[in-house]
Design a binder for these strands. Structure first.
Lengths: 198, 198
DNA sequence: CTTTTTTCTTAATCTAGTTTATTGGCAGAC
DNA sequence: GTCTGCCAATAAACTAGATTAAGAAAAAAG
């Protein structure tokens, strides 16, 4: 029997590769479900990341904390998104990423060791993860460009266009920590939206 | 007969996968050499990127130009680096990246269509490009983190540590355009290096 | 419903980094 | 030679966004 969560991840994968019933079944057998309560951490700075996580309910956030204690959000992971500390996952070194839940969340875990074996057993997965990594890279490059060439107001407008569903479902301070301004300044931006003199 | 350029790219690939002689030979047959003169463009904003480029001599730079005409450098590509406008390459849409040569440069080109066929003929290449894309993603994420959490001086120091060979071989204005400050401010930074009063 | 905590807003002051302009050095072109 | 373009350095005026502080509003907890 296939659960709702399993259905969601199979559809996610079907966007790039097609699996036989046996392959799908084998893949599902490698996954474990894990709930993450609101504000609870899935990963902390200094820990070694040994899994890729697929969110099928709720929302996670990945962020770093700088020397002054300020949080900088790298990624939101609403349903259908993969998240991990890829640096730590690849190198086996302690990572600097904190990952916690903005709301009650459910994830599916794939261990790195199982993922590597999966590449050997079903090479199609090599393709799948290549493609989602490529997409992720494109998005990240765009973010570097935006950070360097757009003003705070423009970055906020970009965010609104790109993540329309998140705008009303997460606190503004989280958006501020994503676009790289203080919550105070974001508030000012929102209340002077293109204030043309008059 | 195998040229010097072909040797360099085969070694680059051997860092992640091993090829048989026949596979290596087939792969090499897909590549074409192209010289890029100093200041000459390999790719311009608005063009569609149809190749991945591997630099084996010289140095390329990939950058965007914002609405005010300022350049923002995303990537330097010294020998042994791959470069392309991945957004354009993946989607087939016109890209926003400009890629030109900082010095006389030689590259090997792999057409997108050949690359896709290569994935089918020799699945190991799926693995190779997955791995270098992963590494590239990790580096790009670190750059987002640095842009958000470090001061201009710290970003400059990071750059010095990370690209020690580039510091004395490229103009300072290029470094400024990479770390995201004006050349004037970079000059000020360099001449007040940790000026502890005294 | 009341209390506590978190989130949002407003406003005054402050600063890292920009803008604009001027200088001198140096390399290649004529 | 000297003319021209490019690069680095310096300085003063300027601005986007941070900091600080305080109160209002909303959400969560009890």
């Amino acid at each position: 029997m296939v659960t709702e969560a399993q259905n969601i991840i199979l559809q996610n994968i079907a966007r790039h590769i097609s699996l036989t019933a046996a392959e799908a079944s084998h893949f599902l057998s490698l996954l474990t479900v894990q709930p993450v309560a609101k504000k609870q951490f899935w990963l902390k700075e200094g820990e070694i990341c040994r899994h890729s996580a697929f969110v099928f309910e709720g929302c996670l956030r990945g962020y770093t904390v700088d020397v002054n204690g300020f949080e900088h959000i790298l990624q939101f992971a609403p349903p259908n998104w993969w998240i991990s500390d890829m640096y730590s996952l690849l190198t086996g070194n302690p990572g600097q990423l904190m990952i916690d839940a903005l709301e009650p969340t459910q994830i599916l875990l794939l261990a790195k060791t199982d993922q590597e074996q999966l590449y050997k057993d079903i090479p199609k997965f090599e393709r799948f993860f290549r493609i989602i990594t490529e997409n992720s890279l494109v998005a990240n490059r765009q973010r570097v460009i935006d950070a360097m060439s757009l003003s705070a107001r423009e970055r906020y407008e970009q965010f609104c266009q790109r993540y329309p569903t998140l705008i009303n479902s997460i606190p503004q301070k989280q958006i501020a920590a994503y676009i790289g301004v203080t919550p105070e300044f974001l508030s000012k931006l929102r209340n002077t939206r293109n204030k043309t003199k008059g």
